[in-house]
Write a protein that binds this DNA or RNA. Structure first.
Length: 805
RNA sequence: GCCGAAGUGGUGGAAUGGCAGACGCGACGGACUCAAAAUCCGUUACCCUUAAAAGUGUGCGGGUUCAAGUCCCGCCUUCGGCACCA
């Protein structure tokens, strides 16, 4: 009989739902397991097959954990603030609230159709005021701790989206959202001091089980470098005691400094305008720099440009040599001190600059040929021309000079990070209002916590104002308010938070989604937290994943959360590409629609196929024809009852086969090798079909192994064979290691390392038994009988190799 | 430029140093059918062959080992991340 997947899937979804099997229980005695997937942005186009790949993996793990006896928290929610919804609202004249609700409804319907075992009773929506109340609360706490500050700054700006972008949102110099070039614009910017957490974010990586490439990417992004700051006295400056401070990782090369370079924005230039003789020339250069965006400016291999400051110079604190000061755009104000000591002999950039501007090159480390290129190897040479450092290795010189600098108060040890503070405000409507009030007298004051949430007011237009302010700026009732401190007239901040705010703590809210006294109850956080296993995309490693670790560590520091690291384990899936092997996108017309696929094949086939397509962590092209293989497999499983025998245990013939299958499937799921787990089940039923029988016990075991992947059909077959308990309430099969091997096995036989045949021997046969078995094989006998066996290499259960002359 | 991952049949991909190509797709042959679809059975790396038996094969060149897709050295290519970070 044909399997009616549509009816069956609906039926079982209703049964699981009614029995509330997917809901996590607070403070339950079973061990807890918190499995998390990245909650989706509910876009108008519905689920993408990329979502399916990301969700199905954790779905399989969550279902397996329930069978294993865990109290599983596997929640779902929606990260719903953001530009696409706002743009859609603008185009259609609808309110983003309604658009968001519609999209969430579509997503929910699709997710349920796939039979995902999410705990829908804990669904969160970042745009719900009962949720963003706490997002605002966290901002206020950050502000009160001095971790949120406002300043004028040059920031990444997308002219198309008309919005500030964080560094994490403008990687490669293009806008994350629309792909257009990012420009530098001076704006009022709210920053979160994520840089203050750089060290904690690095240290935390040692405690967690993240994929190595994830840790590596985060470490690179944070970009820690150890070095020293060194003061250079200034000659001819306005202030005779003024010093220019540089950051360097190579203080050992101090004697090789032949000039200094400061960033074009460095305040030193303005402070000394009165004594610098070529201010005009410098102003022109600075104006040019400003026009360039960050990407152009910092592009490697770009020709070095710069201008020498006439009338001032610096003094090498060690050698006393007087050296010129340049300004050049290869030095930026936002890293280190915005000033660099140039050592052309041992730094490629300085070398290039020195060559172009005819500056002297002093070799201070032997081992290279500085007439040809900068010598930058730190393991090679020995210090020369370096006064007190002569004769030392680079490492020893670094140690000695660092100590010397602090003893003589001309410098100190210093650690720098590439990671910039997080630009946190957006001139947009559809985001959390920043709960800050500006008072003439009191300055920036936070909205009182008992007035939260600070709600988004209804709006007639979602367009920004003429001068690029947030749409909220045009709502007088919202803007004008009283200062909570002095009661005087004041105005509200009109910018909203970035898309990443709500997602930075949502995993905490799932634990206690309806709490109106706290972001989540401490006892519940202790019970369920931290997340045991978090799966998501590599694209979030230097965005969401670092932001949320930062917020969690902050909340830990203020005592709101009882664990420092939010995620014990993090894995990542590969992209799903279009059939043509390139990224799926609407414009390329290679997007796969889950709705039509589920109608044609049903949820189980799709769930299975999406996991079978290829290695989970690698990108894989979609293929419609490949789906049939999974459909055939499930059809074959569905027909197994026709060859079932009434034996509740395992047959002698299939015992080892079945235990091997349990081990393989279970282990592969834990290692996220879903493709081989499925392949093993396919191979198993191929054997079963060959033997043309399966016992009830064997079939039941197979169904339980299949259940996390294809739960509906597994339940249906279990019912068909008279299973009295639904699979969702059964226990996961356990492998008995003593039953993994058959008594006899096929042993490959090599002669001189070449395969000559396969012989059947007892699994614990000794070499004599193996040799005599091998001699019975005609081909092997022919090769061995007249030869002189020099050596026998026998690895039991693996291989035997006869070395002959 | 630096860091990381990966290169295996027509194709997606399997292989704790131990039978390379599991499992699937596709293709080919057969059964069933008036026919087709579906299903079932078989074949399917290359080369030489009627066949058997050899031989060659995991990006390229070396090496270690009884045995290398896997380990080591040197290259090439692709993908991902970072990038004038001082």
């Amino acid at each position: 009989m044909e399997y009616d997947f549509a009816a069956s899937e609906k039926k079982w979804q209703e049964i699981w739902d009614k029995e509330r099997l997917n809901e996590a229980v607070d403070f339950d005695k079973r061990p807890k397991f918190y499995g998390l997937i990245e909650f989706p942005y509910p876009s108008g186009s519905g689920l993408h097959v990329g979502h399916l790949r990301a969700f199905t993996s954790m779905e399989i793990i969550a279902r397996k954990r329930r069978l294993e006896g865990y109290n599983v928290l596997f929640p779902i929610g929606f990260d719903a603030f953001g530009l696409p919804t706002e743009n859609f609202a603008m185009q259609t004249g609808r309110h983003p609230r309604g658009v968001t609700d519609d999209n969430i409804a579509v997503f929910t319907r699709q997710l349920k159709a796939f039979g995902y075992s999410f705990d829908y009773s804990r669904t969160v929506d970042t745009t719900d005021k009962s949720y963003y109340k706490w997002t605002q609360w966290i901002f206020i706490r950050l502000f009160k701790r001095g971790l949120a500050y406002k300043s004028k700054a040059y920031v990444n700006y997308c002219e198309k989206c008309k919005v500030i972008l964080a560094n994490e949102e403008s990687q490669g110099g293009v806008c994350d959202r629309c792909g257009s070039d990012v420009v530098q614009k001076e704006k009022d910017v709210w920053f979160l001091k994520i840089r203050d957490y750089a060290e904690k974010l690095l240290d935390g990586l040692d405690e967690v089980d993240f994929l190595p490439r994830i840790k590596l990417e985060q470490r690179n992004w944070i970009g820690r470098s150890e070095g020293a700051e060194v003061d250079f006295a200034v000659k001819g400056g306005v202030d005779p005691n003024a010093k220019l401070r540089v950051f360097t990782t190579r203080a050992d090369t101090l004697y090789g400094v032949t000039f200094m370079v400061i960033a074009p924005e460095h305040p030193f230039i303005a402070e000394n305008a009165a004594v610098i003789k070529n201010t005009n020339e410098i102003d022109v250069y600075r104006a040019e720099t400003k026009r360039k965006n960050e990407f152009e400016r910092t592009r490697v291999n770009k020709d070095k440009t710069g201008v020498k400051l006439l009338g001032v110079s610096a003094v090498n604190p060690l050698s006393g040599a007087e050296i010129p000061i340049f300004t050049a755009d290869y030095v930026t104000l936002d890293y280190g001190t915005g000033a660099v000591m140039a050592v052309p002999a041992h730094d490629e950039r300085d070398y290039e600059f020195a060559k172009k501007f005819g500056m002297p090159i002093i070799e201070v480390i032997s081992g290279g040929d500085v007439s040809e290129a900068a010598y930058t190897d730190i393991d090679g040479g020995v210090l020369i021309n370096s006064g007190i450092l002569n004769g030392l290795s680079v490492k020893d010189a670094l140690k000695k000079i660092t100590a010397y600098l602090s003893e003589n108060k001309i410098g100190e040890k210093k650690i720098n990070y590439n990671m910039k503070d997080w630009a946190f405000n957006r001139q947009r409507y559809w985001g959390e209002p920043i709960p800050i009030i500006y008072c003439e007298k009191c300055g920036a004051v936070t909205v009182p916590e008992d007035e939260l949430p600070l709600e988004l007011p209804p709006l007639e237009s979602y367009r920004q104002t003429e001068n690029g302010e947030s749409p909220l700026a045009s709502v007088a009732e919202f803007v004008n308010c009283k200062c909570p401190q002095c009661g005087g007239a004041a105005r509200r901040e009109t910018d909203t938070m970035p898309q990443w705010a709500g997602s930075s703590w949502y995993f905490l809210r799932y634990i206690d989604p309806k709490n109106d006294k706290a972001l989540a109850d401490k006892k519940k956080l202790e019970y369920f937290g931290p997340v045991d296993w978090y799966n998501g995309g590599m694209e979030h490693v230097t965005r969401h994943l670092i932001y949320s670790r930062f917020w969690n560590r902050f909340l830990y520091d203020i005592g709101a959360v009882p664990f420092a690291e939010p995620y014990a384990k993090r894995t990542a899936q590969g992209l799903v590409l279009g059939e043509n092997g390139v990224k799926m996108s609407k414009s390329l017309g290679n997007v796969v629609n889950p709705d039509s696929l589920i109608k044609e094949y049903g949820a189980d086939v799709l769930r299975l196929y999406i996991m079978f397509m290829g290695d989970y962590e690698s990108p894989v092209p979609w293929s419609n024809s490949g789906i049939n293989g999974c459909k055939r497999f499930l059809d074959r499983v569905y027909n197994l009852p026709s060859v079932m025998t009434e034996n509740d245990g395992l047959s002698d013939k299939h015992a080892a086969l079945t235990h091997r299958l349990i081990k393989k499937t279970s282990g592969d799921i834990e290692a996220m090798k879903f493709n081989t787990a499925i392949a093993a089940m396919m191979a198993y039923i191929n054997e079963i079909y060959y033997d043309n029988f399966i016992t009830r016990g064997e079939l039941k075991t197979l169904l339980l192994l299949l259940f996390p992947f294809a739960p509906h059909i597994a339940e249906e077959i279990n019912e068909k064979i008279g299973g009295k308990i639904i699979l969702a309430k059964c226990a996961y099969p356990v492998c008995d290691p003593s039953k993994l091997d058959d008594d006899e096995m096929e042993l490959p036989v090599q002669i001189n390392g070449r395969l000559k045949g396969v012989v059947k021997v007892a699994k614990d046969a000794d070499i004599n038994a193996v040799r005599s078995a091998a001699m019975k094989d005609a081909a092997i006998n022919a090769a061995l009988s007249n030869a002189n066996i020099k050596k026998e290499i026998y690895v039991p259960k693996k291989i035997v190799n006869f070395i002959v002359l």
